[in-house]
Amino acid sequence: MSASVLYDAPGPKARARNVIYSVLGSLLVAGIVALILYRLYDKGEFEGAKWDIFNYSGIRENIIEGLFATLKVFAMAAALSLAFAVVLCVGRLSDHKLVRGAAGIFIELFRSIPLLITIFALWVGILDSLLPFSVSIKPMWALVLGLGIYNACVQAEVLRAGINSVPRGQREAAYAIGMRKTQVMATILMPQAIRAMMPTIISQLVVTLKDTSLGYIILFPELLQTARLIASNTTVNGDYPYVPTVIVIGSIYILLCLLLSALANWIERRGRRAKTGITPAKATPPAEAAHA
């Protein structure tokens, strides 16, 4: 149902009312924004000196290093989670009860533990108490492993939904021409499931990207931790430039996530176009629409 079904085409009275609502609503929002901006201005957050820090090459390099650290962790966690998700998903759909049960328990367990706890526990060395030998995990690997395991569990469920959405005839036809279980999964089901679930998979990747900021809490110098380091190590007139750094770093995060979301939308539109295949001719549009 499109939103416009919820209301009639506005008449003169409704249009006047809508204008009043628009003006009032815009004034309210503008007022709140202006108040915040004024408070920031009043505290001297818009002074040139505070923003001048971004002209120093040291700080610029810090930001770029932080950005690369974030992207590196994201790339590794994304690759790990997708590869592991395929394994978990196949395990969950296995014919063997034991494998199916183990994969199911693993997925449910790690999906319900808060991601922060997984990462933090890995960082403080929970593996030491689990394993007979001692391992030391650097913050980066704790972050990558935690993100990878958690997102693998989520992506595995996404893939499972995708595989269940493939028409049953596909699997039956594949078995009928003598394919083996592995072949059916690898060449018939998985490709179609991945294609059907691509938008969901990518929006989960956006979540993975956002969650790399949890590295802040385990003191891994990714983008957000870099922001805090910059803000707390630089003083401008005896004050810390928290607001400018938060604005700059926040914009970088939003931009990165928007780019990934845009990719998801593009793939979704592309997939919809391709999937239609041969369609019956459309009914002729009404006369006015044809001229428009």
Binding site: V206, K210, D211, T212, S213, L214, Y216, I217, L224, A227, R228, Y242, V243, V246, I249, G250, Y253, I254, C257, L258, S261
Partner: peptide, 14 residues
Amino acid sequence: NTPLTLLFLVAFFV
């Protein structure tokens, strides 16, 4: 499209 950690950073420090 904003990480929650960033929101908390704003909420607790800014």
